[in-house]
Design a protein around this nucleic acid. Structure first.
Lengths: 172, 172
DNA sequence: GTCTATAATTTGATAGAC
DNA sequence: GTCTATCAAATTATAGAC
């Protein structure tokens, strides 16, 4: 893993714990074993780092989801897959969804980060719309909205209560 | 309104926009017209301010909800009331739920703030349990969890998309 | 790519006067 | 309750050497 990738990974964990202000260039530089000035070689400003972080997080999330048609072809329910990926993010990492936390504090973020957070939810809604359509839902647009809202909300409250079983209850 | 109340009100708005780190003693002191050192007279530490803020927010929220039995006695649906109060917080103030945002960044908060955020959700779940029970729901505990999760999640994503109509769609 | 050195600003907090 | 004065630490960022 390149230094740049290491920096992003460490920053991701910090942001998923406490938001955009929960990491500094110095902190992540120390953990990677370089100086904070060197971080600016990879990311000119903190906003650049934040935007790239959200962009890559979104791409990785979509890649993990896979293709709705492929899931249906395997005879599986894409909404179950979606729920399991969310659950994995919470249970495996014990952390919030990166873009969920950033979305909540959206107003205080640099604009280029806001753009990437919006992209995450646009892509999620598009995927869920296709999934609910494939499932024969009467109102796939509405179902997509309630699905992602419920999962993000359940994740947030699980963190607030420090109780993973809350998420499991909310999504069954 | 006392200076202390003014400080809390200004801090509340900042936190609901960008989280716990989105205000400083200097900032809120300036807006109230005192010096930052004077803020420490009212709140010894920032954690004290944060905890009191979440506590009062919770109390005000519960007071706005009112009593489940009273609502039923008026012939109204308490879940509709609950939804309307959430919606009002988003549409009137154009801001996140204070404890929703704090809950998402829970891991990075001082412990005394975490305690107050947990209290908010415990009280909400208790109220919703009573509401769904009064409505004759078969599984009021489960219904309470899904109700608050959906509303907090819808609020978060409305902020992320900067689109209030998203919340309305999610809750109808 | 990474370093040293440094700058300007902000932050949470304290001591002690009024 | 509010002030002045002050502090140590942290933050984002830049210039220029290696």
């Amino acid at each position: 893993m390149s230094k740049k990738e290491e920096l992003l990974k460490i920053a991701e964990n910090k942001v998923r714990q406490g938001g955009y202000n929960n990491f500094s260039f110095r902190e992540i530089a120390n953990e990677v074993g370089i100086k904070s000035a060197s971080v600016h070689y990879h990311f000119p400003t903190k906003a650049d780092l934040g935007a790239e972080l959200a962009h890559q997080y979104t791409d990785a999330f979509l890649a993990a989801l896979g293709d709705v048609d492929d899931i249906k072809a395997r005879g599986e329910n894409p909404i179950d897959i979606y729920t399991q990926i969310f659950k994995g993010a919470l249970l495996t990492d014990d952390k919030m969804c990166l873009c969920g936390l950033l979305g909540a504090q959206n107003e205080s973020l640099p604009e280029k980060v806001q753009v990437e957070v919006k992209r995450f939810f646009d892509k999620n809604l598009t995927w869920l719309h296709a999934a609910h359509t494939a499932n024969g839902e009467a109102n796939p647009a509405h179902a997509a909205i309630t699905t992602v809202s419920l999962l993000e909300g359940a994740m947030m409250i699980s963190k607030a209560l420090n109780d993973h079983s809350y998420f499991t209850l909310a999504t069954q």
